[in-house]
Design a protein around this nucleic acid. Structure first.
Lengths: 106, 106
DNA sequence: TATATTTGCAACCTAATAGTTGCATATAAT
DNA sequence: ATTATATGCAACTATTAGGTTGCAAATATA
């Protein structure tokens, strides 16, 4: 059903992918080879991670000459934000305290 | 270093685990067997999912007689919220528009 | 044109995941 | 005391994930 949601949760599950995303969004856009130079992983390994990020819409690929440039797309994280905001009310301080109390009694 | 972060991102990556968490936080706490009855997965399968959720501190287990009751711990999601909030500024409408524009020019 | 760079594709390996079943044990109910 | 219920543990299977290497093709540069 929620394929989009599944994809993004999967994308952010891997620390290397989170780091790739971070690099792209903090610095400038990078080609696959440039990206690879930041990691101890082969270019092909990075390509696979980028592909998952692309499927989750967290990265947009554009071909420039013989290179493929990776652009971060932060908007994709809205999906996660929405999921999270649903649970916000359960962790404010009052509710957390109550929760702890009830759990201890149970 | 960020083992805690890795654990929670891994925990929420699986749709069944997200559903387990949702059930627990919306309804009441449930035993392993009660939980299993909501899914087309064996009790042992659910036990494994619950174990991961416990390691990520999203679920707290308490033994009551012969049962083990699962309590949702929403606080654990703060970790995700913090990670997300770092990127908030990149997806507000103005920045997104700018981002799109720059991407088209690049 | 010849050479160097960037990439994609495919095959492969290994470890981790998601799931199963069978059996033993602890606790509760008759 | 016997039976039923809830669980844990261990072994097993199948699929996916993360990673590798080798090679061919496209594009730039000398």
């Amino acid at each position: 059903m929620s394929k989009k949601r599944d994809q993004i949760f999967k994308a952010i599950a891997d620390p290397t992918r989170r780091e790739i995303f971070h690099l792209l969004i903090m610095g400038s856009a990078l080609s696959i080879t440039q990206l690879s130079s930041h990691f101890d992983i082969s270019r092909q390994g990075i390509t696979k991670h980028v592909k998952l990020l692309e499927e989750a819409k967290m990265v947009n690929l554009e071909k420039e000459g013989r290179e493929r440039i990776c652009y971060a797309q932060a908007k994709a994280l809205k999906e996660v934000k929405e999921w999270l905001s649903f649970y916000d009310v359960f962790w404010d301080d009052k509710l957390s305290a109550l929760e702890d109390h009830l759990n201890k009694q149970a």
